[in-house]
Structure formats: structure tokens, C-alpha cells
Design a protein around this nucleic acid. Sequence first.
DNA 1: GTCTATAACGGGATAGAC
DNA 2: GTCTATCCCGTTATAGAC
Lengths: 205, 205
Amino acid sequence: MAEKADTKARILDTAEKLFGINGFESVSLRDITTDASVNLAAVNYHFQSKDALIDAVIARRIEPLNARRLELLDAAGPNPALENILDAFLRPVYELQIASLIPLMGRVMSNPDMFVDRVFDKHLAPVGARFFAAFHAVLPGLPMADVAWRMHFSVGVMTHTLTWGRIYPRITNGLCSIDDREALLRRTIQFLAAGFRTPASNPIL
Amino acid sequence: MAEKADTKARILDTAEKLFGINGFESVSLRDITTDASVNLAAVNYHFQSKDALIDAVIARRIEPLNARRLELLDAAGPNPALENILDAFLRPVYELQIASLIPLMGRVMSNPDMFVDRVFDKHLAPVGARFFAAFHAVLPGLPMADVAWRMHFSVGVMTHTLTWGRIYPRITNGLCSIDDREALLRRTIQFLAAGFRTPASNPIL
DNA sequence: GTCTATAACGGGATAGAC
DNA sequence: GTCTATCCCGTTATAGAC
């Protein structure tokens, strides 16, 4: 039956959507099962708990995302330009076709407590190390601490854009739109690349 | 009695601390009243609801913060340099002596839904407009949309640093520390200023 | 395998004594 | 102004019917 689809998949899809809109804590299992037209107990049957459901929602998307990042980084050749590294890091996120996933990723990144234990160590540390090495290689004069901070700043820009995307046109009276993803990606890369290229700040003064 | 202090103030102080650490939704009124050693009903007596308490916690800090921002901006003279504008915008946040407030501000900025309705329109839109004008004046060739986007990127960097500050030393194996606020502020301003100064991206290509 | 029904718990809020 | 006791609701999780 194409109509009824897979209960488990419907739960995942609905949870992904609702978590992205309202956050992990604000969305109850009842919200999910009602929206998905499945029974409340189905969540605890297919997953063990709400936390495990959150993990499943994240893991389903983050692994392909990281694979795509590394694919783009490799495709840029052995000595990629700074813009190409940033593009490989950001594009898979900005390109996501699943609209609900974009705010979800923002939610994940904006929640440090859950993030470190449940996402960073497992899913992001390895790919982060690859990109750190790439940034370090293309900016050989930059101290490692600056490379790390500037990666961190870049993640902040990405996260904030994802989290705020839906409301940003409203608070700028339409001046800023997120409809053109490619333009947004270009703006972002240009801004970050300039930041990466500036000399390291002096320790004293 | 200096010991017992004001119950209302103790609730505010404790709520500020706990909200900053664990987020608004995760912290229950019972968590707050237990930590503050006050009765549960005192919250509903001094404030009307948990939501009103959250508003009070935010408003108590954000107004002095904005006043300081405008004070620094005015002190920079009629034609402040880009770095001075960024400094006026960021320094009051990074300089906060109340440790618990820093993650709280990160929480506020990371929660778009509550943010727009309860914080942005009321507390941030006016001061935002002042800074937008200052950025626009110091970068006359930059289209307004780029000014807005780059302010947005800057807020993202600030927010992410605040939100992640506590765990960042851990995930970088000590490479990055937030102990030296002045150095962190300098790094941040340097990065953002370079981003602001880069030419606007071409609409096509 | 899937869902119904409900258990067990913790949440915010309030009434009313003091 | 403060506290005790309690209400009522929403939450996760589970036991057992189908």
C-alpha cells in the first residue's frame, strides 16, 4: 500500500519536520504521532525512546551529508582553494532538498549539550579533522588556534543562517531572502573566505 | 538580612543561571525554586507564569546591554571605523561579568521562535537599526542586502561562540580557550571586519 | 508486528492557611 | 509575602489484546 507507507518512515519524516520547526523539547511524541496518523505506542515500538528517535532522525541525514562533504572535498583535488574547501563544507547543507531538515540541522548545532555527546564525537569529529587539515594546508601561515577558531566562526554563520532562515525575511522587511540558495551560499563563502584570509591577530596590543 | 536577600531577586538570579546552562524548556520551576531555596509558589506570586519569568530574566539584562552598545558607538565619534562599530556591538556581550548570562544570551539568540515575538521586536530592532546605519555609512559601496546579511553572519558568530563557549576547549583538545575574553573579542572582530570589507558578490556567476 | 489502553511520573499553576 | 497541599494536564513508557 503506497498510501499507508511505512509507519517507521512516517514517524521519522514527521519527527524530522516537527523537530525542525519547534525544537526537540517542544515537540511531544503525541505531536508526532498525531501529525503522522500513527499510534502513540508505535514510536516506542519502532524506536526505544524519544531520545533514540532524535538520534535516528539525526543519523539518517548526517551521514550522507558528511559523505557528500568529503566527496566534494576530494573532487576539488589535492590542493583545493580556500573557497573550494568552504564550498565542500557548506554546500551539502545548503543544498538539502528536504526543507524540514535545514532548520533541524540548525537545531542540532544550536544545542551544545546534546550535540557533543550524541552528535559531535560520533558523526562530526572525523570529518571535522579532514577539513581542519585542508584549511591548515591552504593557509600555512595561520596558527592552528586561528584555524580552529575560524572554522568555529564558520559553523556559527552556517548554523545561524539555518536556524533563522525562515524568519530572516520578516525581520529585514524582505531585504534578505533565502529563496536563492546558490546566491546565499556565494555570499556566505565570500564573507568567510575573507575572514579566513585575514592575518592572525597579534597576541599583544 | 543580607543572607536571605530578596526572594524575587534570588529567583531571577537562579533562573538566569539555570536557563543559561540547560535552556528554557529543560529547566522546570521546581529546578529553579530548589536551587534558589525558595518555595515553588513564590514564582507564581512574584511573576505570573514561567513565560513571564523568562521575559523578566531577559529584559533585566538586555536593556543595559543595549545602552552600553549605543554608548560605545557614540563614543566612537561621528564616523566610526568598521572595527569600532563591531567592537561596540560585540564588546558589551563578551564583557559580561555575570558568567551565567553569556550562555543565556546564546540561548535567546538560538531560539528564533521565542526570539522574534518576545525579544527582537521589543528590545533589538531599534539598536539593530542604529548599527545597520553605522555599517552602511562606513561601507558606502556595499548594497544594503549585503550589509544586512553580514550583520546577520556576525550575530551568528557571536551567538555560536556564546552558546558553545563552555564546551569548545573540550572539542578542540584545549587548542581554543575562552578564558581571555579580550583576545577572543580581537580574533572575532578581525575575522568579521575582513568579511565585511570584501566586495559584494556578483549577482551572476 | 501493530495498536489500545493505561500506568507512572513530572510539569505548571492555584487555593487557601498562616 | 510565604508556604502546604493539591489539581490537572501532558509526558514517556509498557503490558497485553489483536
